[in-house]
Amino acid sequence: MTNIKKLASGLLVAVLAFGFSAFKNTEKTDQTKLAPFYYGLDATDDVYRIITGSPVFEECTPGAPKDCVLISPTTDFGPDLDANEEAQLSPAEESSPEAYYFN
């Protein structure tokens, strides 16, 4: 393989890397526009509680049996989630696995 081909391939991968990152970020912006409901895991009783305002994912502290923050794109399940409601929801995109939100 010639050096020119290698250089071209490297530049192609660089463009792909930037394109791929940009594409993922656009998806995030669209989700924010839907104003979803976020539920954080409480360390006191392992129950998911509603997060008022935007979640601060840096607050996630490891050591929990479940995901830190769950997201409900449209439905408001009230202040707490029961087991059935919890099963319907999936972790928020930036949530840490096995971490508590409220300590």
Partner: peptide, 14 residues
């Protein structure tokens, strides 16, 4: 080399 390049560039971009 290309895999490492992709990893670092996506990481830097983020």
């Amino acid at each position: 080399v290309l895999t490492c390049l992709f990893l670092f560039l996506t990481s830097a971009y983020t």
